[in-house]
Simulated scan of single mutants.
Amino acid sequence: NEKTLSGYCALTKKIVNVSDVYNIPREMPYSFNTSFDRISGYKTTSTLTVPLKTAEGRLLGVIQVINARSPDGGTVAFTKEDELLITHFAANATVALQRAYMTRAMILRMIKMSELRDPKETGAHVNRVAGYAVEIFDRWAYRHGLNDVEREKTRDTLKIAAMLHDVGKVAISDLILKKPARFTPEEYAVMQAHTYFGARLFDDPQSPLDSIAADVALTHHENWDGSGYPGWIDVMTGKPLKTDSQGKALGRKMEEIPLGGRIVAVADVFDALSSKRVYKQAWSEQDVYDEIRKMSGIKFDPEMVEVFFEILPSIKQIRELYPEQE
């Protein structure tokens, strides 16, 4: 609203330059909330608030700087030169935000595309899996002493990567993808290709998100004991890089499976077992927990199973937050 400096700047999309926030003219619609100064013990005097707006006039936010300094260290009003400098900085920030928004929009469209193709890839499912994955990672990061900066950076990219874990299913035939029954062995073999089809979408990584998304798409069906799929393959051809005595791709095992893949494996299976499908009923809560424990050290990283049960109240909250629509 226009009663605050930032709100007025956002509404009018104009620069607001105030020399003394404690002496704003009465005719102005905005005022300064002095409680922030009282809480922090810091005295605000001059402020400069600049809108972050695109070339099309769309507002993305505002940037506010306080207390311009004179050469002798005193607090002075912001000058017209300061306005030009901060406006230039704001323009660069706007471009960066636009690119981030465009990236996010494209990712959300990819997720929606997966949802349209696969009736099991509902918005609720991908949000639950992403939510579980982030909670598991947070506890794992706490256990391993990751600093806050690294933890926040990784959790944000992991959340999006987890939402894209099954994006490769867009390359699978509808005859298999939408089959209202269990797969035959031949159909199951075709379905397994969704892992490397998904990873191919990120084969030219431009950011940490691309790398983590590729890892998660490729390895979330790998098993801790090496019995999962697709194993050691060339993502672009699907051909084995490491083979067993029968010439089949060796599965990745233990720490050969990237962290994101080990986390999403638990999150995805938990949600699949807990959810109703056309070919099965949802398992009971206790049966799901028993299965997760039983698969520790076989299908799942034992530490991830420990972490999962440590944060079980959070897991339950996420499941309630994103219920499946009948």
Rank of each mutant, 00 (worst) to 15 (best):
M304V: 03
V235F: 08
I292E: 07
F78Q: 01
M254H: 14
G7F: 04
S173M: 07
N147L: 03
S211M: 11
S6V: 15
G61D: 01
A77L: 02
R26H: 13
S227N: 03
P323H: 07
G131S: 06
I160T: 03
A130T: 06
A217T: 11
V190W: 01
V95P: 15
R117P: 00
R128G: 01
L116D: 11
I318K: 12
Q281I: 08
A105T: 15
T75D: 14
L321P: 08
T47E: 04
S46N: 06
S296G: 08
L146G: 03
I318P: 14
L60K: 09
K299F: 05
K178H: 09
T184I: 09
A272I: 12
H144Y: 09
V264D: 07
P230T: 10
D20C: 07
Y188Q: 12
Q206D: 03
D210K: 02
R182T: 11
G247H: 06
Y229G: 07
K242G: 00
G168A: 00
Y101A: 10
K3A: 15
K253S: 14
M191G: 03
M106C: 11
V62T: 15
Y22H: 12
V50H: 01
E115Y: 13
T47H: 01
V264F: 03
V305Y: 04
K239R: 15
T87D: 10
S35T: 14
T94Q: 08
D72Q: 14
R151K: 15
D234H: 05
D138K: 15
R38M: 12
L84E: 15
F36W: 06
